[in-house]
Design a protein around this nucleic acid. Structure first.
Lengths: 217, 217
DNA sequence: GTCTATAAGGGGATAGAC
DNA sequence: GTCTATCCCCTTATAGAC
């Protein structure tokens, strides 16, 4: 799954000047995004420093600021990069397969996101936990609209007797919380299970069982 | 439910000097804890400033530092205050009532914690999300031990045929994630449901249904 | 494009009067 | 015990040489 779209942030200096990016510039910005993702996801926006990001990216601090106007601009661009991709797995909820299988598929996909992209999950978790100051519009518009669509779909499945009666929006909340937990609260999961234990195989079994028993008619 | 124990933090100046607290001192420290809880839970440790806490507490910044040695000391004492109380609801998992009822009771209690003490939940969430640097010992010792006890209990329930077969530790993780979600990701929940909607009644119905279908023999 | 040096401001903590 | 004033470090961002 591709997590980075080719992206044109208004906050990137080249874009402000209206010029297209060279190959070198694309590589540098990609390096900066990767470093920023690591630092911001681990420390939060305020906790992260440009020194840390510069070190992680293997460049000097003024060099970072040659490519981006400000710390805030890096963070905003990073979130903007990931936001649409973050919605993608939810599009697996559709009528292409049987309702229960579609839901289980979404659960598996979302759990795989936590396993394979824990930093992205924690970046969003940090942001939402602190009141979502930078992505409030996204949540109230794009996300809400997508949830409205999918709850309507789930409601139709219930009415058609394809799955058991269930509150659709809380079903969606439960899928989010159960799957993201393994990325966001990784420190706690590993404190309880031991650092060497991989929780994901058991987690998948548990969640599949959970939603089968919850929804199977 | 009482969330604050009478507490003696090593980081409080009076305690360092070995003196008992006067009534005034207790009130002041309680005021500081309340203010610090609001600020730290909303902004994280690095995001919070002593200026904000002082403003919230209605006192001057040097006055804060008359009662506590440092910003770090306030934060540590606050976490220490809450940590034991945070484990309490889990003790509702016991043999005093029927297994399923005991689990449902724990779920309801934990959900009520999210509803009534969302700042406390977000304080811990901030801490764990950033790798639990200050409560790692607590998680690996106290929490792990309690989880081990309770998973053994759940295992016995399964073997006795009182509840359906289930992975006990992931059952516990799921209860944590599902209930804390409503406090920690409050911003997202309200962006999807609308700011005026109270999610808790529906959440309780959903979760009770979920665990009944999951566990009832 | 990248660097060193540095300006500018925020924020934790202290000094010392009252 | 509480305040004003202040210190000083950390961090963001810029200046200007190369």
């Amino acid at each position: 799954m591709r997590l980075y779209r080719i992206f044109t942030a208004v906050s990137m200096r080249q874009e402000v000047k209206g010029k297209a990016q060279t190959r070198i510039q694309k590589e540098k910005t990609a390096t900066i995004f990767a470093a920023a993702l690591s630092i911001f996801s681990a420390q939060g926006f305020r906790g992260a420093t440009l020194d840390q990001i510069a070190l992680e990216a293997g460049m000097s601090k003024p060099n970072l600021l040659y490519y981006f106007e400000s710390k805030e601009a890096i963070h905003t661009a990073l979130l903007g990069n990931l936001i649409e991709t973050w919605l993608d797995p939810m599009r697996a909820l559709n009528d292409d397969s049987e309702p229960l299988e579609s839901i289980l598929n979404y659960v598996r996909l979302k759990l795989a996101m936590s396993r394979d992209y824990p930093r992205e999950s924690r970046l969003f978790a940090n942001e939402i936990l602190q009141g979502a100051p930078r992505i409030h519009q996204f949540l109230s518009n794009d996300l809400k609209q997508l949830v409205d669509e999918k709850t309507a779909l789930i409601q139709r499945w219930v009415q058609a007797g394809k799955i058991r009666d269930v509150d659709p929006v809380h079903l969606i909340f439960s899928i989010w919380s159960l799957t993201q937990h393994y990325a966001d609260f990784d420190a706690q999961v590993h404190a309880v299970l031991g650092t060497e234990k991989d929780p994901y195989p058991d987690a998948e079994d548990y969640l599949v069982t959970l939603f089968c028993r919850m929804l199977q008619v």
